[in-house]
Design a binder for these strands. Structure first.
Lengths: 340, 340
DNA sequence: TTGTAGGCGTTATCAT
DNA sequence: ATGATAACGCCTACAA
């Protein structure tokens, strides 16, 4: 193994000089820097991570806690994980994967052992049980998802309320007046899942402002459940001209049901979905969708965590941050003017 | 921070005794062990990862290289990543996520710096460019996916040939004689993607043995592409009574096409898919599927890597392993006896 | 069965 | 602008 001492000897400088060439924490003459750098390349030197962590009290690793089972659409999870990893590298950090099957103990373990300098929690629930623990051990953390009480923490999430409002606006602009909202199963609302409640609230409020009538129906996402919701909606409100769907699993069934009931999309009925763009694009016709930027979620979380780690190292108190990312409307072929 | 010296003092033993209690590398009297263990708990001691890696020359971390873009179905990727992480923990290891956007340099970096003791490569291609590099630097590695030349490496993959054979057998058993195979796009076969070629070869061989006629048609997975393949198949072989589909994206379109052409499933036409079980279950009717065990893929890779790391530490040459996991047939409602 | 002490490779504090 | 050197916390021969 090539050590820093080998490089120092080869370049004719002291080990501290080599170290400072890497860290940039003091000024080095151009000549010396060149000599060191060419020695590094010639010898194939890679700083030893363990020694660096030990001496520098920083592992340059962050831990990403992924839920084993999640309400979050799986491909989005991986997209976030990858964006975290890529963004972390831009800050000289590597990313450790922690699953929640260890329970909250996993976070304690990697933080207490110094394996990781900080933690990013994915799929944070309103009353997430991991949060008190994080607060307790002063672990630097950034959350993806907005908890009940975000004090003392940095977090980033989609702006679900705005997503809901965007849906109402788009359909109102097209002249629709009677709208059905097909949501997640009742259990999701019962446990107050943030994304479900906030989206609905945002939709409801904007719908009221724009003078829309609407009906919210939970739906498990199975074909039977969707069929039940569909039938009751058309029974209660035969004049319904548009559907908003927040449950990916219900999209396919709903389109089938519309077709077999003789309604064309978007001429007779508009369909607007809340889901990742590439899901909406898979359908025929392509679906108009309100979509949040998954990749940015990971990037922002990493930036927040880096700021906290840096602040903590300086003995400062990191400011809490709370960022909501604005969703966008991706026009597809499934929404159109309300029929007369 | 609580160090091993604090624990030793508190328990009235030497630091080496504490260390050996953890590593189990020498026998400790029950009384001493108890004293140490309770001190550990009382003080909340966690061994420092950096110091451990430095002194022990082992980081107890493995690196998992995930492709940025992949042919592999995304939820399966995450399932594998999680199974790797969980299995690694059972061996006292943590998992570092490496994306391929660093290029093969990422692997070199984590291996040379001692950040990771070994590497697991996902989604390995037949002529994977990362493999020569791994061989060159003597990095311990396990591959998920079977390359052209697996010498000097451990690898695990699905047994795609058997998956293809299972398809032929199931349909032959049901009395089908004319079968269409809807595969991936032509590009997939052109670059000799292993899973596509091996599946087709396995199917072809068994089909010949069982006296089946079959037609293979590539398909991009879009609605248009599927419609084109469908039309040509029924043009060439009007007597086709069963479809095998290896392209998840083509499943939805194919079912629509069958329905709108007035064919019922499974009475008129059987549909058999090659895809993860939970995808097949989402459809109405549920689809019969041939499925590989994704979770086990991760587990086996970790076990292989652990054996290699242990062997290398002892200065031994690790034996190459090559494991193919057997797929299973999951019966759904989409296959039935051939119509008369 | 247990203790002692040297060394793992870097960083960062003093010097110069 | 650069050097010397004491930590950093743990592991593991070597002793007892």
């Amino acid at each position: 193994m090539v050590t820093i001492a080998d490089v120092a000897r080869h370049a004719g400088v002291s080990t501290s000089t080599v170290s400072y060439v890497f860290s940039g924490k003091r000024t080095i003459s151009a000549a010396t820097r060149r000599r060191v750098e060419s020695s590094v390349i010639e010898l194939g030197y890679h700083p030893n991570a363990g020694a660096r962590a030990l001496a520098g009290r920083r592992s340059h690793v962050l831990a990403l806690v992924v839920p084993l089972r999640s309400d979050v659409y799986v491909p989005v999870m991986l997209e976030i994980a990858i964006s975290v990893t890529v963004e972390a590298r831009r800050h000289g950090y590597d990313t450790l994967l922690i699953t929640n099957d260890e329970g909250p103990g996993g976070v304690r373990r990697v933080a207490a052992s110094g394996l990781a300098d900080g933690v990013i929690l994915m799929d944070v629930q309103l009353d997430d049980e991991r949060i008190p623990l994080i607060r307790g051990q002063r672990t630097q953390a950034a959350l993806i998802g907005l908890p009940d009480d975000p004090s003392g923490l940095s977090c980033v999430d989609h702006d679900f309320a705005t997503a809901g409002a965007l849906c109402a606006d788009h359909l109102a602009d097209l002249g629709h007046r009677e709208i059905a909202f097909i949501g997640y199963g009742p259990g999701t609302y019962r446990r107050h899942a943030a994304y479900a409640e906030r989206t609905l609230a945002g939709f409801r409020e904007r719908a009221a402002q724009r003078g829309l009538r609407f009906l919210h129906r939970p739906c498990e996402g199975t074909y039977e459940s969707t069929a039940g919701a569909f039938t009751r909606i058309l029974g209660d409100r035969p004049g319904t001209t548009a559907f908003v769907v927040q449950n990916e699993a219900a999209i396919g069934p709903l389109l089938s049901l519309l077709r077999s009931s003789g309604r064309t999309v978007p001429e007779d009925t508009s369909v607007l979905v809340l889901c990742p763009a590439h899901v909406a694009e898979q359908y025929v016709p392509t679906l108009t969708a309100v979509t949040g930027p998954a990749r940015e979620l990971g990037q922002v979380a990493v930036e927040q965590l880096m700021r906290r780690i840096t602040a903590a190292e300086r003995g400062e108190q990191a400011p809490d941050e709370r960022v909501l990312l604005t969703p966008t409307l991706a026009l597809g072929q499934s929404t159109g003017p309300a029929p007369r």
